[in-house]
């Protein structure tokens, strides 16, 4: 029987959650015994090769590309997990949610202290995805099955949750493993 597949992605996040996944240290050898990694920055597979058992989503959606990727994950994964505070509630990127979009763009591309932009225009290459009006938590864009909050969630949190899911057990994490900081 083929090993179940796992896909991961980092949307509007900092890759800290992925770092935390790598922090499971030697257990990563156990993990690759249990699963096969599909689309993920871990193995640099860019496109889904097939249906995945589990998708790990780091980060919320701050631009239209994030939305596309997240929707793709939802279509390809049986179980989709929001990993970390950014996916769960927007996180640090969502700090901009109380600031008007124009102000954000002006600060980033026009007025910021380190900006050199003589014509004062926003970057407008059509390849640059458009920014959303605010940062959306993943579950406001697609249905999410599990949440592993934390900034980042600890390696143990990720490990315990994955092991439970791969063994068809309920995800019941001990008190110490569910934290928002």
């Amino acid at each position: 029987m083929a090993k179940p597949k796992i896909a991961t992605t980092s949307l509007a996040g900092c890759f800290g959650c992925h770092m935390s996944l790598l922090d499971i240290d030697e257990r990563i050898l156990e993990l690759v015994e249990l699963v096969e990694f599909d689309k993920s920055p871990v193995d640099d597979i860019k496109n889904f090769t097939g249906r995945c058992a589990i998708g790990l989503v780091e980060g919320g959606c701050c631009n239209e590309h994030n939305v596309d990727v997240l929707r793709e994950f939802r279509r390809h994964c049986d179980i989709l997990i929001s990993v970390g505070d950014c996916a769960t509630m927007g996180g640090i990127p969502a700090l901009r949610n109380t600031v008007p979009l124009r102000e954000c763009l002006d600060e980033a591309f026009v007025n910021g202290p380190s900006v050199h932009n003589p014509d004062g225009k926003y970057p407008d290459d059509p390849e640059i995805p458009l920014i959303l009006d605010k940062v959306y938590p993943a579950h406001e864009v697609v249905k999410i099955d599990y949440f592993l909050p934390g900034c980042p969630p600890t390696a143990d949190t990720l490990w315990e949750a994955l092991v439970a899911l791969l063994n068809d057990k309920p995800v019941e994490l001990p008190y110490q493993l569910v934290k928002y900081d």
Binding site: S82, A94, E140, V178
Partner: peptide, 18 residues
């Protein structure tokens, strides 16, 4: 929230300006 095992709220975030 920890005590009640809340991992994410079911309600949408309002992001009020404060």
């Amino acid at each position: 929230a920890y005590r009640f095992g809340i991992t994410a709220p079911k309600y949408p975030y309002m992001f009020p300006k404060r």
